[in-house]
Amino acid sequence: MAALFSEKLDSAAYIISADQEHIRDFPIMSNPTSNTATSDDAFTQEVAKLIVHALNLDVDPTTISPDDSLYGSGLGLDSIDILEVALVVSKNYGIQLRADHEDNEKIFSSLRSLSDYIAANKTQ
């Protein structure tokens, strides 16, 4: 599955990178100066709101379970959605999520894992 995820993310990166200047600016929804090792419930909900807003999902962010899968089953995001989330996370939190990162499958496995990764690595 990791190879399939990476392959789809690589092809999506090529498609999106040519049009990156059209990625919208999304507001940071909390104080970005705190840098914690794991996310709290409020930060996890912030990330859920960011995902819903970035992808224009018709989902109430508060209904997204922190432990449900983001990719495939669960929230049902595809590789293009994951790439757009990665771009928005990069823009809002200063984290560079690369398509060839060996931990992508783990990072994007759930809302909680993505939130924890952002909380531990954000620079903004």
Rank of each mutant, 00 (worst) to 15 (best):
D58K: 13
L55D: 00
A3W: 07
S17Q: 13
S30T: 15
A2V: 07
V85Q: 03
S65A: 09
N31L: 15
N31T: 13
I118L: 04
Q45W: 06
T123M: 11
D100F: 06
D100W: 08
I23E: 14
L4D: 13
R24H: 04
A48K: 01
T123R: 14
N92P: 06
P27C: 04
K122D: 07
E7C: 07
Q124F: 12
L111G: 02
I80W: 01
A86F: 08
Y14Q: 04
D67F: 05
T33M: 09
D68Q: 05
V47S: 03
R24Q: 08
N31F: 15
G72R: 01
S69Q: 10
P61E: 07
V52Q: 01
D41K: 09
A37K: 09
A48Y: 00
P61D: 12
K91Y: 08
L111D: 01
R98L: 13
L4G: 08
T62G: 13
N35D: 12
T44N: 07
S65P: 06
D68A: 04
I107T: 05
S34H: 15
P27K: 08
T38N: 13
N121G: 04
I64N: 07
D25M: 05
V89Y: 01
D81Q: 09
G94S: 05
F26C: 07
D81V: 00
I80N: 09
K122C: 15
P61L: 00
Y93E: 06
E46V: 12
Y14K: 10
T62V: 07
Y117A: 04
L55H: 02
Q124S: 12
K106Y: 07
N121D: 04
L4E: 14
I80T: 09
V47T: 04
I107S: 00
A99P: 01
F5K: 02
F43E: 14
A37Q: 11
D103E: 08
D81H: 02
G72M: 03
P66M: 11
D40E: 10
L97C: 06
A86P: 00
S90L: 03
S109V: 03
S30Q: 15
S73H: 06
Q45M: 12
S113P: 03
A2I: 07
D67P: 02
A18V: 05
A86I: 08
S115C: 09
G74K: 01
A3G: 02
K122R: 15
Y93G: 12
Q124N: 12
A13L: 03
E46G: 15
L97D: 02
E84H: 10
R112T: 13
N31P: 00
D67C: 03
